[in-house]
């Protein structure tokens, strides 16, 4: 009786110490699922989900927010998030019109150089200085739309990205050539 009790107490003590040590030694900083969600999000930092940037939304999803609040990511991102989080896919809460990739374009002769769009840009993709013309670095623009509203002279347009030889999508255009005579020896 005494041996059994003391043995179990000893075991409990040993495993307790072991677990306590492991909890200290192998402590995980932050929630790893947030990083996984963050890599799935398109990083436009547009704030259309209602959070200030993609990472805050990733944290919100990890805490149980809905997965259908990301219009730039579209249905594809939503489905990936559903798979990762183990929840049912649900339709996007925004219309699908934002699916086409767009970039901002500043009509430069109308720009008055107020720097308001520069302050609004989440990825520093607009260059310019006070009272000087601004322009958008199209390669870095995420198409988040945030610079359009602050412009006092409405000189920013969101224009769809034109296809080039690199990003052109092959259409199904087969080349039909019939066989003349199959038996011809080769």
């Amino acid at each position: 009786m005494f041996i059994a009790v003391s043995l179990l107490t000893l075991l409990a003590l040993v495993f307790g110490i072991l677990l306590g040590f492991a909890a200290q030694k192998f402590k995980v900083e932050g929630n790893p699922i947030v990083d996984q969600i963050d890599t799935l999000l398109p990083q436009t930092q547009c704030g259309q989900c209602g959070y200030p940037g993609c990472r805050p939304y990733a944290e919100a999803i990890a805490n149980g927010d809905k997965i259908n609040k990301c219009p730039p990511g579209g249905t594809a991102t939503m489905e990936k998030l559903a798979e990762l989080m183990g929840v049912d896919p649900e339709p996007l809460n925004a219309s699908a019109e934002t699916q086409v990739k767009k970039v901002a374009y500043i009509r430069e002769d109308e720009c008055i150089g107020c720097t308001k769009c520069i302050q609004a840009c989440p990825v520093d993709a607009i260059i310019g200085a006070g009272k000087l013309m601004h322009t958008v670095l199209t390669s870095d623009c995420t198409g988040c739309d945030l610079c359009v509203e602050p412009c006092p002279v409405d000189c920013i347009d969101m224009i769809p990205v034109t296809p080039n030889l690199k990003n052109w999508n092959w259409q199904l255009n087969a080349i039909p050539v019939t066989l003349l005579d199959e038996e011809k020896p080769c």
């Binding site: 398109p42 990083q43 520093d124 870095d140």
Partner: peptide, 20 residues
Amino acid sequence: SALRQAAEDKLQAERAKQRF
């Protein structure tokens, strides 16, 4: 081409994140 585009998008997202 879709896979190439996806890889390109991912790269761009990563860069946007860094800039942000």
